[in-house]
Design a protein around this nucleic acid. Structure first.
Length: 531
RNA sequence: GGCGAGGUAGCUCAGCUGGUCUAGAGCGCUGGAUUCAUAACCCGGAGGUCGAGGGUUCGAGUCCCUCCCUCGCCA
């Protein structure tokens, strides 16, 4: 059995869940669901990153303990992900013991091997923010605080460093040798370009501030005056969660999904740490681009972040599955940003979900209701009919969808499912079952057998399409399967279930139910749902 | 400044190593056909000097050079 381990970043617990978190996790979810269906042993992991000093500060401002603050915010992510219908197998919080104990063991190992050493850190310190800013940021702000505008101080402090420079060669070789290690390709080029400019060691700790919760964060082994930098410790979650006897086989991860802003840590620092620990590297680090909102970059100052409340509002109006479909198939998987716009959402919703899938299911079930008393007709097995070779058509779209999933091409995977729906619509127009029905004189009329065949084929094709839609739209796809009296597959059922009139093909005599419309058409002038 | 990704129909984008591209798809628009269906589905049509200029070539959206614009990365 193939093993598939899919991760998302762990999200900064001070954030409010927004479209960015949801998008990355949705991509992971669609992949995870597809792989489960295909029979892989899947582990999908997401979670929260909790040890930043700002978490302590915000908790203090809110007048609650840091633990309580983190609990509350982590729960907001859990709730958001439940709303989105995500199927993560685990949710890790860096404040959990399972993570802390193993992460500090990894750090210890790197100290022992000499990959982490004590050195002098010289940098630009912002006293107001109590943090260092990078050289480029400092320069861009004329060596003044980007926040307060007050001058930055050049400070030196004792820090532990990770010997990143030692891995320059091996990393470059690995990336060169494995073209799909960093994806998409533009990101790979970016990393290779920066690698050519040479690597410097990176600080991995800083001195603990007075008065901070002693239990918060991870201390440097043998030097508790230093706290491990949160980003370096956070990276360890991917390994710490599976570094157990039961889950050890999941490592190395099949894919780390993330947004482009944290590419460097995932494509360079983390792999170098793994090399230092003698662990295999993840098979793929996939950095997607951003969603922008209505053509404008989302930012705190513009206040135009699409937050979970807004996605919930869209979900209530159009169904969460419609939101999933739109985000998954129009999302910024490539190197360039994608736009989340209401007008575009409505276009896609109407064209693909309402006029496409929803209408097709409706017309098929409706005819079965009218001409066969709502029972799956008993049809002869004709491979090719009405100019369509159904077994090979559905088989080739199934195969193409699988390949697309393996290539992390959600648009193509989804549209191979949609192509089956389009084929059903075309087939109905060519064979005109509604016309045939008027000519049928009785059950012995050959036209009756043709009618049965046509409608059976339509429903059977729809069944296979629904299976391929399942990872994208779990609830709506299940509703389609339910409408036509098909069985919802168990994990591993993909092959058996997608075979044309196979073991799980539609059974003649099974009732079909129209139910309510799947996706009702929206008028273009309807205002956007409000959060 | 260095590096990277782009600029192709109203919109979103495909077009890999140059010749079935006299340039494609989906959406939108428009004409027709049809009525089983969620005014939907099906067929047809209009719409682009492929960012600008120069070059290589028998032939360039596709290669080279210059320039313009957009976006990303710079620990």
């Amino acid at each position: 059995m193939a093993t598939t381990y899919i991760t998302t970043p762990i999200y900064y617990v001070n954030d409010r869940p927004h479209i960015g978190h949801c998008y990355t996790t949705l991509v992971a979810d669609v992949l995870a669901r597809f792989h489960r269906l295909a029979g892989d042993d899947v582990l999908m992991l997401t979670g929260t990153d909790e040890h930043a000093e700002k978490v302590i500060d915000r908790a203090r401002e809110a007048g609650v303990g840091v633990r309580e603050w983190a609990d509350r915010n982590a729960q907001a992510f859990r709730d958001a992900f439940t709303l989105m219908g995500f199927s993560n197998d685990d949710f890790v919080r860096t404040s959990e013991d399972r993570h802390k104990t193993r992460a500090s063991r990894y750090i210890q190992q790197l100290v022992d091997s000499g990959d982490i050493y004590l050195g002098d850190y010289v940098g630009w310190y912002d006293p107001g923010q109590e943090e260092y800013v990078t050289e480029s940021v400092a320069k861009a702000h004329d060596y003044k605080s980007p926040v307060s505008g007050k001058p930055l101080e050049k400070r030196t402090e004792k820090n532990y460093f990770f010997r990143l420079s030692a891995y320059e060669q091996r990393l470059a070789e690995h990336i060169e040798k494995h073209p799909t290690f960093i994806r998409p390709e533009a990101r790979r080029n970016e990393v290779l370009g920066r690698l050519r400019q040479g690597l410097q060691d990176v600080p991995v700790s800083r001195a603990v501030r007075d008065g901070d919760d002693a239990d918060w964060g991870i201390r440097m082994p043998n030097d508790p005056g230093h706290r491990v930098y949160v980003w370096i410790e956070a990276l360890c979650n991917y390994l710490s969660v599976v570094d157990t006897p039961e889950r050890g086989h999941y490592w190395p991860a099949s894919i780390h999904l993330l947004a482009k802003d944290i590419l460097w840590f995932h494509a360079v620092v983390w792999p170098a740490m793994l090399l230092g620990m003698g662990r295999p590297l993840p098979r793929c680090v996939y950095a997607h681009a951003y969603f922008v909102a209505e053509g404008r970059k989302m930012s705190k100052s513009l206040g135009n972040f699409i937050e979970i409340d807004q996605l919930r509002a869209y979900g209530s109006r159009f169904s969460i599955d419609a939101v999933r479909w739109y985000l998954a198939t129009r999302g910024p998987l490539g190197a360039t940003d994608a736009d989340f716009s209401y007008a575009n959402f409505v276009d896609i919703y109407n064209a693909e979900l309402a006029n496409g899938l929803g209408n097709c299911a409706s017309r098929v079930v409706n005819m079965v209701q009218k001409y066969f008393e709502g029972v799956t007709p008993n049809a002869r097995d004709a491979t090719v009919h009405g100019g369509v070779d159904w077994p090979s058509l559905t088989e080739s779209h199934t195969r193409a969808a699988r390949e697309a999933i393996n290539a992390v091409d959600l648009f193509s995977a989804g549209h191979n499912a949609m192509a089956i729906v389009t084929a059903v619509d075309g087939y109905i127009n060519t064979t005109e079952p509604f016309r045939l029905a008027k000519r049928v004189t009785g059950p012995d009329d050959p036209a009756h057998a043709d009618l049965a065949l046509i409608l059976y084929n339509c429903a059977e094709a729809l069944r296979i399409a629904a299976l391929l839609f399942l990872p994208f739209m779990p609830a709506k796809s299940a509703a389609v399967l339910d409408m036509i009296g098909a069985i919802i597959p168990e994990p591993g059922g993909l092959d058996d279930h997608t075979s044309w009139r196979g073991k799980f093909g539609l059974k003649p005599g099974t009732p079909m139910q129209k139910g309510q419309g799947l996706f009702m058409r929206v008028e273009a002038d309807e205002p956007a749902p409000k959060a």
